[in-house]
Amino acid sequence: MAQAAGIHIEMPLGVVVRKTPGVTRWARWSWRAVAVLPGAGPADWAELRREGEAVEYHAATLPLTLWAADAEAYRINLADGVPSIYLVLRETDQDDRPLDAVLVTASPYEGQDYADTADDIVEKIPMTPGLVAWVRDFTLQHHHAEPFVKRRRDRKRVDLVEDGRGDARIRQQADVYRAPRRKAVQ
């Protein structure tokens, strides 16, 4: 998603993806994002750990960008029971690399926008305590609550108009619509 120029900060964020055997005959493998690595260096599907058939990969390192204009969304994320990072993945045709990591965001609204399309997979990954503090500090610095302004009614009298009386050019008492008649041509 394109973002307008403004106040922002950025941090490289590594993404850890776990590959486990599938539980059905239709899916040979199950892929799931399980962790983030704040401040990680570049990676391209580097194997981190192997336990039997389960393998964890440092799939990619993407920039996590926080925008001042999205501070309200970050506040909502932090208020959630488990503050999370949203990872957007796209399927590829390659066997050794079936997913491409496209984006990481701390905005649940942006994560929802990507989840609404059928092309992307959005994984919710819990934030580390240090990452929670980093996002919280940025949010506190840039979030400005907008005061609630109650809408006032105008003083116009709306009960004076009789709707549903049909064509105003025809005099009638009933609540029936009648089209005006054309004058006969002689």
Rank of each mutant, 00 (worst) to 15 (best):
residue 100 D to H: 05
residue 98 P to S: 07
residue 114 Y to V: 00
residue 95 D to F: 07
residue 147 P to L: 11
residue 99 L to E: 00
residue 151 R to T: 12
residue 68 A to H: 02
residue 43 A to L: 03
residue 133 A to D: 15
residue 22 G to S: 06
residue 128 T to E: 07
residue 15 V to Y: 01
residue 145 A to Y: 05
residue 135 V to I: 05
residue 76 I to S: 14
residue 137 D to I: 05
residue 180 P to R: 03
residue 115 A to S: 13
residue 107 S to L: 01
residue 43 A to P: 07
residue 42 P to D: 15
residue 4 A to S: 13
residue 129 P to D: 15
residue 175 D to M: 15
residue 167 D to S: 08
residue 43 A to Q: 07
residue 80 D to F: 01
residue 159 D to L: 07
residue 143 H to R: 15
residue 12 P to K: 08
residue 95 D to L: 15
residue 138 F to I: 09
residue 46 A to V: 09
residue 140 L to W: 07
residue 121 I to E: 09
residue 56 E to Y: 12
residue 46 A to D: 14
residue 41 G to W: 08
residue 12 P to D: 08
residue 150 K to M: 12
residue 154 D to N: 13
residue 160 L to H: 11
residue 145 A to R: 13
residue 66 L to F: 03
residue 173 Q to G: 13
residue 43 A to W: 02
residue 51 E to L: 12
residue 164 G to P: 00
residue 70 D to M: 08
residue 177 Y to M: 08
residue 161 V to S: 11
residue 105 T to D: 00
residue 112 Q to R: 15
residue 124 K to D: 11
residue 10 E to I: 02
residue 142 H to E: 03
residue 47 E to D: 11
residue 108 P to I: 05
residue 130 G to W: 06
residue 7 I to H: 13
residue 79 A to W: 03
residue 131 L to F: 05
residue 18 R to K: 13
residue 124 K to I: 05
residue 26 W to M: 15
residue 13 L to A: 05
residue 47 E to S: 11
residue 19 K to N: 07
residue 139 T to F: 07
residue 95 D to E: 15
residue 152 R to S: 14
residue 100 D to I: 02
residue 132 V to A: 06
residue 91 E to F: 01
residue 72 E to W: 02
residue 96 D to W: 12
residue 150 K to L: 12
residue 68 A to K: 04
residue 137 D to Q: 10
residue 9 I to F: 08
residue 51 E to T: 06
residue 31 W to I: 01
residue 65 T to D: 01
